[in-house]
Amino acid sequence: MILLVVMASVLIAGVTIYQYREQSKDYHQVRLERKEGQIKQSISYTLQETTYPVTTENLALIFKDEIYRIADVQNVNFNIYDLKGNLIKSSKPRFRNDSISLHLGSEIINMLSNTVDKRYVLDDTAAGDKYQASYTYITDDKFKPIGILNLPYFQDNSFNDMELKEFLLRLSVVYLFMLLIAIILAYFISKYITRSLQTISDKITQTDLTKRNEKILIENPGHEIGKLINSYNDMIDELEISAAKLARNEREQAWREMAKQVAHEIKNPLTPMRLSVQSFERKFNPEDPEVQTKVTEYSRTLIQQIDTMSSIASAFSNFAEMPAQQNENLNVVKIVKLALDIFNEKYIHFIADEEEIIAKLDRT
């Protein structure tokens, strides 16, 4: 908005300056033509009233005094040249070297003779001032050229320049006022827009998959901001649905993992219990003097495995983790021998360099 106001002010100022210059140019052109026409009428009247023969040679005599009277009446100075470009008479008693030439150049004479309307205007400068010099033929009553009329016309643009400065000054004041209004409007509009955007930005930053997210509620939002808010609220709804599905899938996956773990933990004690029963069945001898000791060890082994299964079942029923590890000081050699009692394969050998190796282990 501010940029448009500044661009408009610059463009209007440029168009105004251009228009003033064009108007000034047209004004001086019309004024020069009018002055030239008035002087030519006065010259024609003088040629009709003179008693001298109307020839080039008599122009100096004809306009000896009349040239000053015409210049005074028309309030403009002019010069009369012969057809070869030599100065015959000038309304100024003293010649200005920059504006009045004693002899016209061949270029001016050729341009004048080659123009359709037999009129040539030259733009030039004299003493630093711009002026226009018009050249046209002076003819007799039979329209035969007998001389060249030269009318120097100095362009006085001081009045137009003053008016232009005043207009630009007024225009600057008006556009300065408009610029201030544009700045104020732009400020409040941007604050209104950014306030809604800031609210949306804060909500997006606070969005979290692990909790319930609040929707954005703004009264009377703009059309574009309303679309953005609706899109965010729709995304929140979809996010909640996706989070519920994800939580359900995670619970199902957790149950699967827990079932696998429980099955694995139950199989661990079942296998040695089965092997212990098979080994006891093969090795049991009622007449063995150590039968009571072996039954005791066999019972102890089964009880340990049963306790393990019981702890697993308790943990599962309480929806707790698998049994926490309970470390205690155990004799590794003894534990290994107990485990090997259920195996009777000949290729299994256990050799310990020491009778007792203590380590912290979980018995189950």
Rank of each mutant, 00 (worst) to 15 (best):
I2G: 06
L3F: 11
L3Y: 02
L4G: 05
A8W: 06
V15H: 04
V15R: 06
I17L: 01
Q23C: 03
Q29H: 10
R31M: 14
L32I: 04
E33T: 00
K35H: 12
G37W: 08
Q41W: 11
Q41H: 14
S42L: 15
S42F: 07
S42A: 12
Y45W: 09
Y52F: 15
Y52W: 08
V54C: 02
V54W: 05
N58M: 08
N58T: 11
E66K: 15
N77S: 12
N77P: 00
N77D: 15
N79E: 12
I80Y: 03
Y81D: 10
K84R: 15
G85K: 08
I88D: 01
S90A: 14
S90W: 01
S91R: 01
K92N: 12
F95H: 11
F95E: 08
D98M: 02
I108M: 05
S113G: 00
D117R: 01
D117Q: 03
R119P: 01
V121T: 15
D123L: 08
D123K: 10
D129F: 09
Q132Y: 06
Y135P: 02
Y137E: 05
Y137A: 03
Y137L: 10
I138V: 02
T139M: 11
K142A: 05
K142N: 08
K144L: 07
G147H: 09
I148F: 05
L149K: 06
Y153Q: 11
Q155L: 15
N157L: 12
N157A: 03
S158R: 14
N160S: 14
L171K: 15
V173P: 00
V173Q: 14
M178C: 14
L179R: 06
L180I: 14
L180Q: 02
I183D: 05
I184K: 07
A186L: 09
Y192V: 01
Y192A: 13
T199S: 02
T199C: 00
I204E: 11
L209Q: 15
R212G: 11
K215G: 09
I216F: 03
E219S: 13
G222L: 11
D234C: 02
I236R: 13
I236T: 05
E238F: 08
S242K: 14
S242M: 13
A244W: 00
R251Q: 11
E252F: 06
A259K: 09
A263K: 04
H264I: 07
H264Y: 14
K267Q: 12
N285L: 03
T293F: 11
K294V: 04
K294I: 06
T296L: 13
Q305L: 03
I312F: 11
S314L: 11
A315P: 05
N318Q: 15
F319T: 12
E321H: 09
P323W: 09
E328M: 05
N331K: 03
K334F: 10
K334N: 05
V336L: 15
K337A: 09
A339P: 04
D341I: 00
N344L: 12
N344Y: 04
I348P: 03
H349V: 07
I351W: 06
A352N: 08
D353R: 06
I358R: 07
I358K: 10
L361Q: 06
T364R: 15
